[in-house]
Design a protein around this nucleic acid. Structure first.
Lengths: 206, 206
DNA sequence: CGTTATTGTATACGCACCGTTTTCTATGGT
DNA sequence: ACCATAGAAAACGGTGCGTATACAATAACG
């Protein structure tokens, strides 16, 4: 395998990246692979090749392919800002769920799909419960609080389970249908979430 | 590898099963493997060994490991009978969802887990949407009809999405938490499903 | 009955990919 | 200048899917 001349067949004679720089290059490669071929198509070798490094440097930092995807997911996910304050319960809910759906359409969604698949495959227990927790209830509660402050008719005695309903249904839709369209979000908000959390208008219903 | 004597090292000199008999033996082996080691731990070789046959005989009938699990799932799943008629909306819902949860706790649940995982892993499209469809809405609608016939206050103008809510949430719970406890079903029925589908009592609420 | 087509049994193989090991070499610290 | 650390490259072992090959038993057919 002695290359007489031509293309740069080796990275050995090159300024060598270390530490944070290399780490970032690896995560960038993971993100690109997730976007292009998805978690299923992403192999440790393809990530290493793309990052211009070797598998060993990856395994020195993360113990498995799954851990790599989780790390990428954490870095990719950014919690959306709630809309500026002249807003409404419905607008807040739509913005929140739409932002999640948009993230799911990109590499973060591929990572999520892979994490779920792996958590189902491996006998390894519900690391999935950890990953998904938090994303769901916290932001939802904030939206409800904001609506209460605006004196919108949000119930005060909400059952704990309700906090998980929106994100659970969104996730389920994503997993089963591979994507979440705007129509679904609208129905979810108008036909499920709002009816569940608002007090019935006292006189307005015929 | 010439075995001089002793144990029966080969199936060559034995009444040979064919057709339906062999097919059943294979499915039985799949079911047993699903129950014992789950879909992830079930290999084609382990199924073949357990069924006392070879991989070729399996691949002659089913094209892949996934297809095998789907077949087993179809044969395992039995739709539960609704409870006898002096019943109630709540009782019907509890019985229905409890029956599903019970199935999920056995080999059918393992098959389901595997099918979901595979459908997420393979670029193969949403065969998952097919598998899950039907299980959800149809039985739910029958329960609602029965309740309406009993003059329970079930709304008539239910949004289409509502038909999928109970089974979607149950499935999501199963996938994320690996099992569905009775508590969850109770909350699902009392805090989500019934509030969504019943008309608010006209005078009873303070 | 004997011949032939089909199908089960047994085994070995190619392939992909994970995670590891080994070897060599560039870089940073002192 | 030296040495410890860590990156690059390549090869390996292991597992499991799906296939190919060789052979034997059974069914179907004359």
């Amino acid at each position: 395998m002695t290359t007489p001349d031509g293309e740069p067949e080796s990275f050995r004679n090159r300024p060598r990246r270390r530490g944070a720089a290399l780490e970032e290059a690896i995560i960038d490669a993971v993100t690109a692979e997730l976007a292009e071929v998805g978690y299923a198509g992403m192999t440790m070798e393809s990530v290493a090749r793309r990052a211009g490094t070797g598998k060993v440097s990856i395994y020195r930092r993360w113990p498995s392919r799954l851990a790599l995807a989780i790390e990428a997911a954490y870095r990719l996910i950014e919690l959306p800002e709630p809309p500026p304050e002249p807003s409404s319960l419905r607008a807040d809910l739509m913005a929140w769920l739409t932002a999640i759906a948009r993230q799911m359409a990109g590499p973060a969604g591929e990572a999520f799909r892979g994490i779920v698949a792996e958590s189902l495959t491996q006998a390894g227990q519900g690391r999935l419960a950890d990953v998904t927790r938090g994303t769901g209830s916290e932001q939802f509660r904030q939206i409800l609080d904001r609506a209460r402050r605006r004196s919108e008719p949000v119930r005060d005695d909400l059952a704990p389970l309700l906090g998980q309903v929106p994100s659970s249904l969104l996730q389920h839709r994503f997993l089963v249908h591979h994507e979440v369209d705007q129509d679904y979000i609208e129905q979810l908000v108008d036909d499920v979430v709002i009816p569940l959390i608002t007090r019935p208008h006292p006189p307005t219903l015929a």
